[in-house]
Amino acid sequence: MEKQYSLDELCQLLGLSKRTIRYYMQEGLVDRPMGQKRGAYYTGAHLKQLQQLQEWQSAGYSLDRIKELMGQSATPADTLLALQPKRGDVSVWSHIHLAPGVELHINPEKAGMTPEMTRKLYQQIGALVDQLDKDES
């Protein structure tokens, strides 16, 4: 038998409020619970939908864009790579200064990178640039 979750359990597992999960259901981003009223419960499928939604939000996607993504059958990684910008889409680029004349340009949305991943990449590339400077001296 598939594991069943209460709304409170989903909230604890995902760090979301009841209100947020209900809003996602209202917007059609997450399926409605099984059963009704006090007998309502959620399944692993609901958990996966919410996790996927959080993944895309952390990648910088708007809820409208997430609705489009959830309507596609590709895996999240395939979908992130295959998306082409549409007219009017706004993309945010990070420009990180590493050294004089050396700058790293990242579009975290397209790269599927969180801020933590971007910082780690900067630190690793920065260490390489420092090593090159050290080797030159």
Results as ranks from 00 to 15, higher is better:
Tyr42Arg: 05
Leu98Tyr: 03
Gly112Val: 05
Leu16Trp: 00
Gly60Ala: 10
Gln49Val: 11
Pro85Ser: 02
Gly71Cys: 13
Glu9Gly: 02
Ile125Asn: 04
Thr43Ile: 09
Ala59Ser: 12
Tyr61Cys: 13
Ser58Val: 10
Ala99Asp: 10
Pro33Glu: 00
Pro85Leu: 00
His46Val: 11
Val92Asp: 13
Met25Val: 12
Leu81Cys: 02
Leu47Met: 07
Thr43Ser: 13
Thr75Ser: 14
Gly88Val: 00
Met1Thr: 12
Lys37Val: 04
Arg22Trp: 07
Thr118Arg: 03
Glu136Pro: 02
Leu83Ala: 07
Pro76Glu: 10
Lys120Pro: 01
Trp93Asn: 10
Glu103Met: 07
Lys48Trp: 07
Ala59Gly: 08
Met25His: 02
Asp130Asn: 13
Glu9Leu: 02
Leu128Pro: 03
Arg22Met: 13
Tyr41Arg: 13
Arg38Ala: 01
Lys37Ile: 01
Met34Arg: 15
Leu47Val: 10
Gln36Leu: 06
Thr118Lys: 01
Leu14Ser: 07
Pro76Thr: 14
Tyr41Val: 11
Gln84Ala: 06
Tyr61His: 15
Thr75Arg: 09
Met70Thr: 05
Glu136Asp: 13
Thr79Ile: 05
Gln26Lys: 14
Leu63Ser: 10
Tyr23Ala: 07
His97Asn: 04
Lys86Cys: 09
Met113Glu: 12
Leu69Ile: 13
Ala127Tyr: 06
Asp8Thr: 13
Arg65Gln: 15
Thr43Tyr: 06
Glu109Val: 03
Leu69Cys: 12
Ala127Cys: 05
Lys110Thr: 06
Gln52Val: 15
Leu121Glu: 05
His46Tyr: 11
Gly71His: 12
Ala74Thr: 14
